[in-house]
Design a protein around this nucleic acid. Structure first.
Lengths: 150, 150
DNA sequence: ATTACTGCAAAGGCTTTGCACGGGT
DNA sequence: ACCCGTGCAAAGCCTTTGCAGTAAT
């Protein structure tokens, strides 16, 4: 991802471009590990040489508010962040606290199996507006998968 | 729910019966509001006259470990707890932080629409064991529903 | 020039821990 | 009699806030 591409993406979402923000976003996009704020900071610090935790948090907050990053809250652990905003599923591994992505085609098949008519009747019956379907699997690792990214 | 019924339920799940634990469990069962630890403590204190937060937390932890209570982690807010361990859906209202239950029949229709074969192939492909499907909706309230419990 | 991003340190909220006491089996 | 549940206070972790300095438009 070039600097210009990131700039454009920020602009489209009403986010000012700064060096830190680019570094944070770039690092988050470069990994599939759904890092915590601290982990992400460590990644950024390898290239860029100052970045406080406060800035990480406020930057990630901003990204989430502007819809280019998703946040996952984990029981008793630090929040994890994901640069992919497309509605794919997560599999949470209870033993390690990791979150891994469910492959897109499988995510799509599962999400598409939910009948929109059910949701619409739910909205009507409960007097609410449903903005998002959050769907995650909880499991444990049995064998090492092949080619796990950083 | 009688004291004996609670005792039995505890025993089935390897939980010793004490006065506090009964009070906590009874209070949690009596509400549909998915209280936080503090809220639950306030409810219990109306009847029983001492109960520290530390006890609430350790009791709820125990209940969750033994599988008679479910815990929900909320971004930036205190955890909420649910006495219904059946796999029904939750609707999280972003504006208020409330969590309301999706009616059982609707929950069932949605959960049943997920093809178990997809999950099995996922387990095989990713080398994991899927223990649980966590599915929640995020939305906002539009009108007041009728008959909301405590 | 104005606005708002950044770093630092301190405060804050929620939860857990350590230890002494009291209740449950 | 033993074990563990309970209360209190203190510590802990993750996150936010306040403020002074600096960078972006």
């Amino acid at each position: 991802m070039t600097s210009t591409q990131i700039s454009n993406r920020f602009q489209q979402h009403g986010i000012r471009h700064t060096r830190r923000r680019e570094a944070v976003y770039r690092a988050l996009c470069a990994t599939r590990s759904h890092p915590t704020a601290e982990e992400l900071r460590a990644m950024v610090l390898r290239d860029d040489c100052t970045l406080s935790l406060a800035t990480i948090y406020s930057t990630l907050d901003l990204f989430c508010r502007q819809g280019i990053v998703r946040r996952m809250s984990m029981q008793g652990r630090a929040d994890r962040f994901d640069s992919t905003t497309a509605n794919h599923l997560h599999l949470r591994l209870e033993d390690t606290g990791e979150v891994v992505d469910v492959p897109d085609d499988v995510s799509r098949r599962i999400l598409e199996s939910v009948d929109p008519a059910i949701l619409r009747s739910l909205e009507r019956d409960m007097g609410v507006e449903v903005d998002e379907i959050e769907f995650s699997l909880v499991g444990r690792r049995r064998t090492e998968p092949v080619g796990l990214a950083t």
